[in-house]
Write a protein that binds this DNA or RNA. Structure first.
Lengths: 370, 370
DNA sequence: TTGAAAGCGATACCAG
DNA sequence: CTGGTATCGCTTTCAA
């Protein structure tokens, strides 16, 4: 007597059990599974019934081993340092799920950790999506050798398809807005620019800031250009220092909303009214920005994720698609105004100003495309 | 002449190529790979050299097929509707990465979508972590049949290991704080309580609210208990309605910070000063709460993710661990005060009040454990 | 239209 | 300590 495994015994059904149950060969089951047209309708029905009866689901590992495709893509993200990354991730998740791909999340906490991460990353993934940072060249070479496409989101690249925005233009836009309001002493607060693997956006934004100043015939004052870690407190410290200096700026452009919020905190602490005595522009338009009524530079975050995923999907399908640039736009809320403006009598009364801010925040500010 | 594949030809090296290169059998390479002690040192060295020379990395699919373990766990999360989920995810990611497991992210946008999601989910995963929601019983049965452990985060469960907090206690804590300040007309604004697969926290928090009122000898006034979708605007609408009613509440307990922010917006819009004329308590202590100076109920979000992952890891290792409860605590910031309090002269001056709020926010409020 | 059988790349048992 | 080899579950020729 041969041992005929009963269905209940096994944790999960396999293709051969389905085949036996349906009275066909495994190849036929496979054909049904993969939607091959060359299966007689009645046979297909029998197979489908067996699948349903056994609650069968194909084993992805076996399938991957056989086809060489895992149907999953890796997403590398500096997940927890930037709120904007979450928005992008959402777009990625949408697009990937829609195409039947799994999303394997790799988070990179410390910059530098990425080199490790990228090293152990590749195997078992059909492709790679990197958010806001770029793998080291050596790893890129390995991915390419392994035939694994890589797409960059929020990071331009010479050779790789990428979805990005023009950070220089964004920096210019922010600064020009302040210049147009009449500001002349405009400070910049951004990230440290060294050592961050691929985190170049802050430097780009600063470059736009400098371009705008120069174009306006102003000098870039080194004393007004400050850098700190990408967080609220360090930015607040820099702002405090700037605001208590002999010749304080009338406006501050922060390279991120997170840092801009730090600036607002410092200003409020020092009793420097915003926007009456100080104008502040941020960058990213994350959720707090809306709440704080922060004038900022917005970009389509979620869309960047979707587009990036689509680019990768295209590469996976053999349809090489070129990278693309997404627009940035200025969102004017209530942290910017003419220098020294008092905004009439209402400026003193908090609730009124608060209400006004809220109204502006609600209608999401005036938007100006780059 | 036999075809000897050259290394450059193949995208990635396989174990047999490593074996050939090192002049050993594949079994030996496998032993080295898996740290078996029974390999002569010199042999191990040769294998390691070959691995390095070929840039070899084991194929996860093949390994999974052979061992039956994929070394990856699925994480189901209502990713984008709750900022708190991100914090939890961070903890999960930490713990998982530390243990060498991959994180496969499944996001559930609409409740109801989860039933679909869970259906196609199981295969290819060693275990499942479900954040803030619970798979339907039918799916749970399938997972169990497939031998796939499931751990719940932010959701209590009779049979499954789970990491959760006492939402009832949290609701009580919030309400007792308001009662202690002297409030008697305390409204509640929470989520809709139907249809949300497993999203029961809002109902629990309401229950705590009602308990506290009853204990204090007060009636639960149906007119003061409101529900809406979990977002700012709907909560603001409810608040507006409450505040313009004939007998407006002096305090509002919102079942989430997101909704509490909506309440604050409505109040500011109507010129109802917080906390002078209205006290507001939120729930979750997400980032905006700190920024808004919102009094709220906090819980260790990131830790919940870590603990959940650890629980799953333990189950995967065969060490069944029991679920555990994490504490909630009241964080008093500046949106709560005695009813009708004017807080002396400073109450009128916005910057001073703003500064005070900020200081409180910075020192992160007074914390009271449940 | 269908079935048999050869891989895919690892693990692990069984000899030696 | 080491080398064959069967095996995992599926896809994909190749014949029938």
């Amino acid at each position: 007597m041969e041992s005929v495994p009963r269905e209940e015994e096994r944790g999960v059904a396999t293709i051969s059990e389905v085949a036996r149950h349906a009275g066909v060969g495994v190849a036929t089951v496979s054909r049904v599974l993969n939607g091959s047209p060359s299966v007689r309708d009645e046979t297909r029905r029998r197979v489908l019934d067996a699948i349903a009866a056994l609650g069968y689901a194909p084993n992805p590992a076996a399938r991957a081993l056989s086809t060489g495709r895992t149907l999953s893509v890796g997403v590398v993200a500096p997940f927890f340092t930037r709120p904007s990354v979450i928005e992008r991730l959402r777009g990625v998740s949408h697009a990937l799920a829609g195409a039947g791909y799994r999303l394997v999340l790799f988070d990179v906490e410390r910059p530098g950790q990425d080199s490790e991460s990228f090293r152990t990353l590749p195997s078992g993934l059909d492709g790679l999506l990197s958010i806001s940072l770029c793998p080291p060249d050596a790893d890129l070479a390995r991915f390419s050798a392994a035939g694994m496409p890589v797409v960059l989101i929020d990071h331009p690249h010479e050779h790789l398809p990428a979805v990005h925005t023009d950070d220089v233009a964004g920096g210019r836009l922010a600064t020009e807005h302040l210049l147009a309001l009449g500001h002349r002493r405009i400070a910049y607060i951004g990230d440290f620019e060294h050592n961050y693997h691929g985190f170049t956006s802050s430097a780009m934004r600063r470059s736009g800031y400098e371009q705008a100043l120069t174009t306006a015939g102003l000098d870039v004052e080194p004393a007004l250009v400050r850098r700190a870690a990408h967080a609220r407190a360090p930015a607040a410290d820099l702002a405090r220092d700037l605001l208590t200096s002999r010749e304080p700026p009338t406006a501050i452009f922060a390279a991120s909303d997170t840092q801009a919020i730090g600036v607002l905190e410092a200003a409020e602490e020092l009793g420097v009214k915003v926007p009456d005595r100080l104008s502040v522009v941020g960058y990213d338009d994350i959720e707090v920005a809306r709440y704080a009524g922060l004038t900022t530079i917005a970009q389509p975050l979620e869309e960047s994720g979707e587009r990036g995923a689509e680019l990768l999907l295209a590469a996976l399908a053999g349809t090489e698609a070129a990278g693309r640039q997404l627009p940035v736009e200025l969102v004017v809320r209530s942290t910017t105004a003419k220098p020294g403006s008092e905004r009439g009598e209402s400026a003193r009364r908090s609730t009124v100003r608060g209400r006004e801010r809220l109204r502006q925040a609600r209608q999401d500010g005036k938007r100006v495309r780059s």
